[in-house]
């Protein structure tokens, strides 16, 4: 609670959470009042915004608000799933590498470095392309993003866990007869918790951005709309050159809002969690 009180003092945190709450509001509360279950032609191709369809219509004459809301929900789903996978994987690998040291560390660090050198986007494009247009579901894309996005968290968690390993309270835990697993879970992981949480937030944001990026170049999910596929459609149908701003500006704005809000939350938490900045 004191933590929350301190966080609320940070303007970055307040702006970040407000912005993110707005995003969540749009994704989960707005659909109660605005029917997004049906997606059908309601007017002309790229019909301009009207009082009835505030954000206009897409190339198939569908309501953009419905598309964006559905896209937003898909993007959040991708971000969350990819974030969870990447955080869990990265934390586990980093924790074990840092704690065990020696040959285990060498092998795991080599693996991590291998993944770091290969740019994630290239890997994503290659995997997505190889799956082909029929099997590329939203979940599959999230899993791929998660499986390729853990390197950064693994590296930072490894450094932290190896630093904590040499602390006195670990030695004392050994003298208390604690085994390796217990030390890892009780005496190391809690120290990394705030850190892992921050990594998680950034990885959600990275997951959403990655999905948008590969969707935009046409390798996105085929079973649903996402913010990335909306942009891809806009691009493929020449909305950009014809000046149909409602085809790309709202989607871009939403992506930026999500990334920015998560970034602000992360940065403000750093100030509160970081013991050196806290007093």
């Amino acid at each position: 609670m004191k933590l929350l009180k301190n966080l609320l003092k940070s303007p970055m945190f307040v702006i970040g959470t407000s912005l993110f709450s707005l995003v969540l509001f749009a994704a989960f509360i707005v659909p109660w009042f605005y029917d997004i279950t049906t997606l059908q032609r309601v007017g002309d191709s790229y019909g301009a915004p009207t009082a009835q369809y505030l954000l206009g219509l897409d190339h198939l004459g569908r309501d953009y608000i419905v598309l964006l809301l559905r896209g937003l929900r898909s993007s959040l789903y991708v971000g969350l799933l990819a974030g969870v996978i990447a955080t869990v994987l990265g934390t586990l690998i980093g924790l074990i590498a840092g704690f065990k040291g020696g040959i285990v560390d060498d092998v795991l660090s080599a693996l991590t470095n291998l993944f770091v050198v290969i740019p994630q986007l290239v890997l994503l494009i290659l995997i997505s392309a190889s799956i082909g247009d029929t099997g590329r579901s939203l979940t599959l894309i999230a899993v791929i993003i998660g499986l390729t996005g853990w390197t950064w968290s693994a590296r930072s968690v490894r450094a932290q866990s190896s630093a904590i390993k040499s602390k006195d309270h670990i030695s004392l835990a050994r003298l208390n007869g604690d085994g390796g697993l217990r030390i890892l879970l009780i005496h190391i992981l809690p120290y990394l918790f705030s850190y892992v949480f921050m990594v998680f937030i950034i990885l959600i944001s990275a997951g959403i951005l990655s999905e948008s990026a590969i969707s935009m170049i046409g390798l996105g999910p085929v079973d649903t709309q996402s913010l990335g596929t909306i942009l891809n459609d806009a691009k493929n149908n020449g909305a950009l050159s014809d000046g149909y701003w409602w085809a790309f500006l709202p989607a871009t704005g939403i992506i930026i809002s999500i990334a920015l809000s998560l970034y602000l939350i992360n940065t403000s938490m750093d100030g509160v969690f970081n013991p050196r900045m806290r007093k």
């Binding site: 602390k167 006195d168 309270h169 030695s171 004392l172 835990a173 003298l175 208390n176 007869g177 604690d178 009780i186 005496h187 809690p190 120290y191």
Partner: peptide
């Protein structure tokens, strides 16, 4: 058994002192 130099770094800050004194019975 041993006592160390820096008492602050010897205890896990996420648990109460008392629970950690009790944890010594783990040996």
């Amino acid at each position: 058994q041993s006592v160390f130099q820096d008492p602050f770094s010897c205890f896990n800050q996420f648990f109460t002192i008392r629970s950690q004194l009790k944890a010594a019975f783990g040996i």
